[in-house]
Each structure stands twice: as C-alpha cells, then as structure tokens.
Simulated scan of single mutants.
Amino acid sequence: MRIGIVVDSACDLPREFLDRHDVVVMPITLRIGENLIEDQRDPGATQNFYATHLDRKSEDFAESIPYSPTQIEMLFLERLVIDYDYVFCLTITATRSPIFTHAMQASRAILNRYKPIRRALGMTERFGLAVLSTRNLFTGQAVPVAEAVRLIRLGGTPSEIGMRLQHLIEHTHTYLVPADLFHIYKRASRKGDTSIGWGSYTLGSWLDVKPILYCNRDVTSTVDKVRGFETGVEKIFSLAAQRLLAGLEAPSVCISYGGEPVAVTRLPGYRQLAKEAEDNGVSLLISPMSKTAAVNVGPGALSLAFAAKQSMH
C-alpha cells in the first residue's frame, strides 16, 4: 500500500527531509503590510526573507492565507488520490489556523469524488484519508510528521500509524525562545496567544528578559523567563538532553531557527544535546524556521520539540 503525508508549510522540517520522503507541502501565503510572500519551505527563499528583513517592525499588520478547502480538494483529486492509496494530512494546531478546518471540509468532497478518477486509470478504487491536527506549532508539528515517515518506512498499516500518531500528538512538547518580543506581543496575541502581556513585553524589552514559551495540546504558555536569548536556548537544549536520557516516545528531536540553521550548532548546550542524541540513536532534525512562524514569533527565534510522557520543565 502506498501511504503519503501532506503538511502545511508551517511544519518545521528540513527541505531535504521532506523531499527525500516525498512529504507534500501545502504552501501558505503571507500578507505583511502591503506585501504578499509565499511560504513553500524553500530554503533559499526563506533565508532571503530573513537576510533582507522583509518583515519589519513597522509592519504591525500581518496575516497568513492558507489553502482553501477547494485548493486542498484539487491537490488531492489531481495528484494525491493517484499517487497514493492512503494519505495522512497533518496540520498546525486548529486554534491558530483554519488549515485543519479547511482540510476536514475538503476531505468530505475528496472521499465522494475520488473513485471515478482511480477507476479511469485502472487502479483499485479504494482510497483512504486521515486529517489530524497536530495540536501544536512549528517543530511540534514536525515531530509526529517525522514519526509518520519512520512508521511508513517500517511497513506500518494506516490504522497502526493513525493510532500511534494520535498518541504521539498528545505527548509532543514544544519550546520556543524568541529573539525579540515585538512579533509575539503585536501579532501572535491576535491569534489567541496570551503568553506575553504588555507588562512582560515592556520589561522584557528593557532588561533583555526572554520568555520560554511552551505548547502542548493546543495551549501555549510561558514556563520560564531568563536573561538573554542564549541563556534560554541553553536551558531548553539541556532540558531536551535530560528528557532524551529519560526516554522519548519517538526517536527524533526537531529544532528550527529563524536564520541560518548552521548557527544552531554554535549555540550553548547544542554540543551536549547532539552527543546524547548520537549516543541514544535519536535524530536531530534542524531546519530554518518557516516564514509563517517568523511573522508570528519574530526572526531569530529558536524552537525545539520532542515527544515524551512528561515535559520535565
């Protein structure tokens, strides 16, 4: 059975990983001020986005424009129902984006319309589709996607993979350290993020106090505050190393950075985390943070996620 995976472009996985495993990416269009920018997880375009400062603090207004139900329906009917027999569509948390809702709406039309397409090509008519909200953001979306890839390669059935992903989604923990608080305060708050209020934004801007943000099961909160970006990064790298030693639910730790990914390897705490990962057979998947993430949390932010029974913070 041919099993495929579809994600939206907010999913922070390396492009090389997505391409190697034929993970299909639904692009998101970003409107920043008067500019329209396409987010297709293209590494060169993403680095250009950061390097040329296309998103400026003067642009208070920003919004994301995800695939519509009709666009998702056409993606499946023109390509995916032909290339695969079963597809998992894994989206960013439904509390921050309508992508999950749009995919659910499209799924009904897809399942009603796919049979004649496959029949005309001489294929067995049966096709299956599961739409899952990862209930998480950015690297937290990436962890179950990486696990789905692994399970498909091991020959798992759709029912086995689906049950495993639903369990993993509940136990995926995402941490994020912003380099600058402006975007979270001005933009993410408009999407329901209450982790940074006016007082935290003002104090943090004056004293370089960075919040460590945490997301699990659709809820984002501040779990700690530290002086300086690198201090925050070192703290979540150390936490991930401890959790790795205690045992993970899936053998991947996903990291994304709002800049050149190679810079991650020079941050404090990375070397120890990389050693623990290598010693314990865990993959570190490092990618540029998506433009979609950056317009909400700001350039220069770092996100890390893993799956475990407990978060340990």
Results as ranks from 00 to 15, higher is better:
Asp19Asn: 10
Phe229Val: 06
Thr52His: 14
Arg79Tyr: 04
Leu165Ile: 12
Gln105Pro: 06
Val233His: 03
Gly247Tyr: 03
His21Tyr: 15
Leu129Phe: 04
Arg113Ala: 05
Gly259Met: 08
Leu90Tyr: 04
Lys186Gly: 00
Arg187Cys: 03
His183Ala: 08
Glu276Asp: 03
Leu90Ile: 15
Ala263Ile: 10
Val177Thr: 04
Ala120Arg: 12
Arg227His: 04
Leu244Asp: 11
Leu304Glu: 05
Ile92Trp: 05
Ile286Val: 13
Trp206Phe: 15
Val233Trp: 00
Glu125Lys: 09
Ala294Glu: 11
Arg31Cys: 11
Asp85Trp: 08
Pro251Cys: 05
Tyr201Leu: 00
Ala293Cys: 10
Ala240Val: 15
Leu304Ala: 11
Thr157Ser: 15
Met312Leu: 13
Asn136Met: 03
Gly199Asn: 07
Leu77Ser: 02
Arg96Asn: 10
Ala130Ser: 14
Glu147Ala: 08
Leu137Ser: 07
Met312Trp: 14
Arg96Trp: 12
Gly192Met: 09
Asp224Val: 00
Arg271Glu: 13
Gln141Lys: 11
Ser252Thr: 10
Val209Ala: 02
Thr134Trp: 08
Glu278Pro: 06
Leu132Trp: 05
Val6Gln: 05
Ala301Tyr: 01
Arg41Tyr: 00
Leu181Asp: 02
Leu245Pro: 01
Ala103Thr: 06
Phe306Ser: 11
Phe88Leu: 14
Val143Pro: 02
Asp8Arg: 11
Ala277Val: 01
Asp55Leu: 13
Val219Thr: 09
Gln71Asn: 01
Thr134His: 13
Ala305Cys: 04
Val143Ala: 01
Ser64Ala: 13
Ala146Tyr: 12
Pro98Leu: 09
Ser133Pro: 04
Lys57Ile: 15
Glu249Tyr: 06
Arg96Ala: 14
Ser58Gly: 15
Glu73Pro: 12
Ile5Ala: 08
Gly300Trp: 06
Leu285Cys: 10
Phe49Asp: 07
Gly300Ala: 08
Gly140Lys: 02
Glu278Lys: 14
Arg150Asn: 02
Glu59Met: 14
Met163Lys: 15
Gln166Ile: 03
Tyr214Asn: 06
Lys309Ser: 10
Ile212Gly: 00
Tyr270Asp: 01
Arg108Asn: 08
Leu245Glu: 15
Gln310Met: 11
Val87Leu: 14
Arg119Asp: 13
Ala103Asp: 04
Asp224Ala: 07
Asn216Tyr: 01
Val25His: 09
Thr220Lys: 05
Ser195Gln: 02
Arg135Lys: 15
Leu30Pro: 07
Ser58Trp: 12
Val295Phe: 02
Ser221Asp: 08
Arg266Leu: 14
Met289Lys: 03
Lys235Leu: 08
Met163His: 13
Ser221Thr: 03
Pro288Asp: 09
Gly258Tyr: 11
Val145Leu: 05
Ser58Asn: 14
Gly258Leu: 10
Arg153Tyr: 11
Arg243His: 06
Gly298Cys: 01
Pro69Gly: 11
Thr91Arg: 05
Thr93Phe: 00
Lys191Gly: 10
Glu16Val: 08
His313Arg: 00
His313Val: 12
Asp12Gly: 01
Asn136Ser: 13
Arg41Leu: 12
Ser107Arg: 05
Met312Lys: 06
Asn280Ala: 14
